[in-house]
């Protein structure tokens, strides 16, 4: 099997297992889904017969493997059942919230890239020099700073205190600039650390020396030798940070009342709305797997040595 297909297959296998675990959350929950749905749809005291009918309709009287299979096939089609809180389809709730979160995370990732480059590049010219030490200090401090504290500072001091930006976020691109900042800082610092290491290794390697001896300029060496080499470790770490994005988005969205899935997730956890939690969690896992798959594929495309082996 060619390597890209093999990577896809193993990602799908992991996803299926993760899906089983996410579905299994239902078993951990002490709540009866059928009753919960009837309650959410406005029936204040569902009769036992009604509950049994809904139970049958939902397939909850079948065996566990059957239930999982039904849940999974529905989930693949985008059907995550009914919200226990609102009685609406989960998919509709998500669809309304997803674009705002995508906007927020894209802006945050853009910021993070800018932060990473701004902190990694200045110190390269003279490792151990003042610019390098300063940037490394910022990287170290930035990665130890809690997202929520930065968020509170921005919200309470900048938005409320100084009146810059909006208190109630609307989920638009321009509204994403401020909430994206706390999300981007920690990620950017981590990226800068890896980028700096990768670039230093690449620019100190004999092949960069060869390029210098042949008269190549600094920028040319940075762009053609440095960045491609730094890309592999950078992409790996960048993909890893996709795993923390959901929790980060939850913090920022809750703080800034951003109408995205992060805030919906926290609302749903508080309300015990398990179907919505399941859907968002699965989305988080899919995003993480996709990011890793993408990073692996790109890394293999950049490095001919990886293209053949494995």
């Amino acid at each position: 099997m060619p390597a890209p297909l093999r990577r896809l297959a193993s990602a799908l296998a992991v996803l299926a297992t993760a899906g089983a675990l996410v579905w299994g959350l239902m078993l951990l929950s002490p709540v009866d889904p059928a009753r919960q749905i009837l309650l959410a749809q406005g029936d204040p005291a569902p009769a036992p017969a009604e509950v049994d009918a809904t139970r049958h309709e939902l397939g909850l009287d079948r065996s566990y493997p059957e239930q999982y299979a039904r849940w999974l096939t529905a989930a693949v089609r985008g059907d995550f059942g009914t919200s226990w809180r609102t009685g609406d389809p989960v998919a509709a709730e998500l669809a309304g919230r997803l674009p705002a979160t995508i906007r927020l995370t894209l802006v945050a990732l853009l910021f993070a890239t800018a932060v990473a480059l701004a902190l990694a590049l200045p110190g390269l010219e003279r490792p151990g020099g003042p610019a390098d030490v300063f940037a490394r200090g910022l990287v170290f401090g930035g990665s130890a700073l809690p997202v929520f504290a930065v968020g509170v500072v921005l919200l309470e001091f900048v938005v409320v205190g100084a009146g810059i930006g909006r208190v109630v976020a609307d989920g638009t691109w321009s509204g994403a600039l401020l909430p994206a900042l706390p999300l981007a800082l920690g990620i950017g610092a981590e990226w800068a650390r890896v980028l700096r290491g990768g670039l230093r290794d690449a620019l100190g390697a004999p092949h960069s020396e060869t390029a210098r001896a042949r008269g190549a300029g600094r920028l040319r060496i940075l762009a053609l030798h440095g960045l491609p080499h730094a890309a592999a470790p950078f992409l790996t770490v960048a993909a890893m940070s996709a795993g923390g994005l959901l929790a980060g988005a939850a913090v920022v969205e809750t703080l800034f009342t951003w109408p995205g899935i992060g805030r919906l997730l926290i609302t749903s956890i508080d309300a015990g709305d398990l179907p919505v939690v399941q859907a968002i969690v699965l989305l988080g896992v899919v995003a993480f797997l996709a990011a890793n798959l993408l990073a692996e594929t790109l890394t293999a495309a950049i490095d001919p040595r990886r293209r053949e082996k494995r």
């Binding site: 092949h207 060869t210 008269g215 030798h225 001919p304």
Partner: peptide, 19 residues
Amino acid sequence: RGGLLGYVGQDPHAAADPL
């Protein structure tokens, strides 16, 4: 560099960008 002076390094594999 590269014009009047040519340069050949020590380890040919290290001196060539593997990518």
